[in-house]
């Protein structure tokens, strides 16, 4: 019971932190919409073209805007020592990675999911496809959170090359993009592609605590 209380307090702390920094999340969403505008201005406001490539634009922009907030994933807690305090309270590094991934999904990715219907209206994607869009985005953004955890924990001690973390996330998200866009565009293959995406999610979710935990431990020991 004590363990569950600790987890509850962890999420309460994350909620407080994210609430005080809510303008960061809102800036991310504004970045998302402004990029959609820029895409549409550069392509031209032709309805046929936009609805053809809209899904690709949505996914690209979700990926780019979720890599924007990557530096904040562990960096603040690492620098003010909260990561060590959480670890001393009885959480292993791997478990901290799982909790941080879930909190990133809840507090950063869920606002994106809520703004997707508006983006679908802007990009002229039909309402029947909305359920497919939501399915692929929910699974895909959880995978992106796991990848973000891995890459940002790798780059905790990296003081020179900040962009490397974003590049790592983007290079590993290629299969996710392929299958998620496939879910939306090939509706007859919905179940098989969803299963493949779930499989990728399980693999990444299994790798995540191991890789991130090891990197967190290394960085804290050598800081």
């Amino acid at each position: 019971m004590k363990f569950l209380t600790k987890i509850t307090f962890f999420f309460y702390r994350e909620y407080k932190l994210n609430l005080s920094g809510v303008q960061d999340i809102l800036t991310n969403i504004i970045f998302f919409f402004v990029s959609i505008f820029i895409f549409i201005f550069s392509i031209g406001p032709d309805k046929e073209t936009i609805s053809l490539i809209g899904i690709g634009i949505l996914w690209t922009l979700l990926l780019l805007s979720s890599t924007l907030s990557l530096r904040k994933f562990y960096q603040d807690d690492f620098e003010n020592g909260n990561l060590l305090i959480i670890h001393l309270n009885g959480f292993s590094y791997g478990f901290i990675a799982i909790l941080k991934t879930l909190s990133h999904f809840i507090f950063v990715q869920i606002p994106f999911l809520l703004s997707i219907p508006i983006a679908c209206i802007l990009l002229n994607i039909s309402n029947e496809k909305l359920i497919y869009v939501f399915t692929s985005f929910t699974i895909g953004s959880l995978i992106l959170s796991c990848l973000g955890s891995i890459s940002s924990s790798m780059n905790l001690m990296n003081q020179r090359n900040y962009l490397l973390g974003s590049v790592i996330v983007m290079i590993f998200s290629v299969p996710i993009i392929i299958f998620s866009v496939g879910i939306i565009n090939l509706e007859e293959n919905f179940y098989s592609l969803t299963n493949i995406l779930f499989g990728i999610l399980l693999i990444v979710f299994a790798i995540n605590p191991w890789a991130s935990g090891l990197c967190l431990k290394l960085s804290l020991e050598n800081n």
Partner: peptide, 30 residues
């Protein structure tokens, strides 16, 4: 090819040698 390039760049961008080597090894495994 891009993964190889990231490995090479990672070798240049860490100041602490112990962290660098282990992080690169983890990245190679992933």
């Amino acid at each position: 090819f891009i993964i190889y390039l990231i490995i090479i760049f990672m070798n240049f961008s860490f100041e602490n040698r112990v962290v660098r080597e282990k992080v690169v090894a983890i990245f190679i495994l992933v």
